[in-house]
């Protein structure tokens, strides 16, 4: 009897949480989940608990930013979402299935690493072309896409340069171009604009937003900048350290397209304040535990 009741209660709870979840998503973006991280722990070989009980669902067409103090596990979480690092426990699903579906049509994934990760022996253009080479895509269409990607990050003139001949920011932009060239459906970026000056950063923010809308991307974006997170995202996920966990999920309901006026609006300032507070709290929590 008690068992039965318990089962019924569990079911109700499950269906309730499930329905609120979808409600939330339909309100803003209506998409099916693209990545679902459920109860994921990640413990590295040296005993560091990088992630503890992390739940995060990113719906189709969302732009989610991960924000948190250094070392809180943002990169780790992003790698888990990319299928690059196995979770120690918990499950990760892509398009409601397992990792096998990633890479298929409409299910392409691209990753921008925290450092540029270019092949030093290959020229910029060859680096950008790499994903196409690996997928055996050649021809005029591929070339056009490479040109487009280089143009977007402002490196058209540098296709023949070697990575070492570029500045740190330019290398990072080449790395972004490499991710764009595959026309991904899910784009995971780890502090892609951290090394750039304010102007370039703003311009690339706008470019990414434009492409996100145009191409219907789903984006998960790691950043240290509260302003960048608020400007870009429809959700800002705040994490705390030791162990890495999600502490707040702030919805940014401002409509798109967002432009320069949004940056100076009171609405923007309010969101930034809220996110900053959450971040402060998260940082304080991390220190308490230590």
């Amino acid at each position: 009897m008690v068992k039965q009741l318990k089962a019924i209660r569990d079911e109700v709870v499950v269906s309730m949480t499930a329905s609120t979840k979808t409600d939330d998503q339909t309100r803003a973006f209506g998409g099916r989940p693209v990545v679902e991280v459920a109860g994921v722990d990640k413990v590295y070989g040296n005993g560091t608990v990088a992630l503890k009980e992390v739940d995060l669902t990113v719906g189709e067409g969302e732009f989610v930013s991960l924000l948190g103090p250094s070392g809180c596990g943002k990169s780790t979480l992003l790698r888990v979402m990319a299928g690059l690092g196995e979770a120690s426990s918990g499950t990760v699903k892509w398009w409601e299935q397992d990792y096998q579906v990633v890479g298929g049509k409409g299910r392409k994934l691209a990753f921008v690493f925290q450092n540029a990760t270019l092949m030093p022996w290959a020229r910029v253009r060859k680096n950008v072309r790499l994903p196409l080479d690996l997928a055996h895509e050649h021809g005029a269409d591929a070339e056009a896409r490479i040109d487009q990607a280089l143009e977007m990050v402002g490196l058209s003139k540098f296709g023949n340069a070697y990575p070492r001949e570029l500045s740190g920011g330019m290398q990072m932009r080449a790395s972004i171009a490499r991710a764009m060239v595959t026309e991904p459906n899910l784009l995971l970026m780890d502090e892609p604009f951290g090394a750039l000056d304010e102007m370039t950063r703003n311009r690339l923010n706008d470019d990414v937003l434009r492409l996100w809308k145009e191409k219907g991307w789903t984006v998960v974006f790691v950043t240290h900048s509260v302003y960048e997170a608020v400007y870009l995202s429809n959700r800002v996920v705040v994490m705390a350290a030791r162990p890495g966990r999600v502490v707040e999920d702030v919805r940014i309901d401002a409509p798109y397209p967002r432009g320069a006026e949004f940056r100076v609006s009171t609405e923007f300032a309010d969101y930034c304040r809220r996110v900053s507070l959450a971040l402060e709290k998260a940082s304080a929590q991390g220190e308490e535990d230590h």
């Binding site: 690059l84 890479g103 790499l130």
Partner: peptide, 21 residues
Amino acid sequence: DPNLMSMFRMYRTGRWQQLIR
């Protein structure tokens, strides 16, 4: 570079391509 290796794996590159490239 382990990140480059991760990327090759992400694109499901075979051993031969990993070796050559």
